[in-house]
Amino acid sequence: MEIAFYVSALIAVLATIRVVTSFSPVHAVLYLIVSLLAVAMVFFALGAPFAGALEIIVYAGAIMVLFVFVIMMLQLGGEASAQERAWLQPRIWVGPALLAALLLLVLLSTILRGEAGEVISGELITATAVGGLLFGPWLMAVELAAFLLLAALVTASHVGRLERTPDEETGKGEPR
């Protein structure tokens, strides 16, 4: 179990590094799926099979498919990669990377200085317990989540509607 945890954690970190550094959108999405699957493996290893299943179905399944669809729709291919290569010069990414590393250091020091001391032995938390919680005392949170999804649906269908842009009408013009 520990081995499973550490191996999938390593895979997740490596895959994520490739996600943020790769030049091709398609490669990045594939690496992201790998990363998510690895995190799902972590969940299984920790003893949260319900969460792991959801991670695979919703994250790696539904949301990533959405990304792939959009990439296909916008036909992001070879020239996009060249553009990315031009944008990802060292002088651009060094500063943010150092800042992120600093934050990581702070986080790590905080975590390690904490007195949690708990050890995860892999006891299962069943879906039944989660379900009982969600449809009992947390019912309001579920309702809120439903509202959120509805709002996202309405927003997406409104924002995603394509109108004719000014430069299509006049040939040239300020983008709105």
Partner: peptide
């Protein structure tokens, strides 16, 4: 992020 890092640093 800079702000968050500084705050966390200060708290730590």
């Amino acid at each position: 992020v800079l702000g968050v890092t500084l705050i966390l640093l200060f708290l730590a």
